[in-house]
Amino acid sequence: MISKLSLQLKVVILILISLGIASFVIGGKKAINPDEASLSFSEFDQVITTPVETISSVQLADYLMKQEHHYNLIDLQGKNSGYQIPTSESHSIKSFLELKIPVNETVFIYSSFETEALQLYYLLLIRGYFKVKILAGGIDAWTAQILQPLKDDIPAEELEHRKRLTNFFGGSIRNESNRSKSVSFKPVVLEKKKKKHQGC
């Protein structure tokens, strides 16, 4: 029966059998096993000495306000955090790493200060994520620039734009006179684009 098959098919079958056996032998082995992977000193140095990618509060506010992106905004402030930036998800460093989201996702990280954000930043970089940014100045910068900015600090030509951002996120622009007053923020409901599979 086999002898009746055309020569082409015989060749095809031969190639397939050898590749099939090879794949059976390789089985489930991965090129990079996360438990055995290691960075050399020079690779580690490379990661650490590259300038940290940051996003300013104003840039982030613009980005969020568009409501047309898919992103992950990670809040590392911990349990006793008060205010959270709209659409952010509260995580610990460990709990976020465990999500194992795809490495091409956009990730913004912020914390009370920049330290925790920076820790997660590096942990993500060595795992191959390449679209990670930390919020420059942490949540304090967000409060100072978006929620209750001082009018005097804003350049005149920027004022309109900044007013819009502040209003959008439910804050208010302060004058020198009511500087010390703390304002309560209106909660904002923001939409975030869902991640989609590309349709076939």
């Binding site: 099939g20 059976f24 089985g27």
Partner: peptide, 9 residues
């Protein structure tokens, strides 16, 4: 993974 490839082949 490799076993499933083998089976499909």
């Amino acid at each position: 993974f490799g076993t499933s490839v083998f089976i499909v082949i």
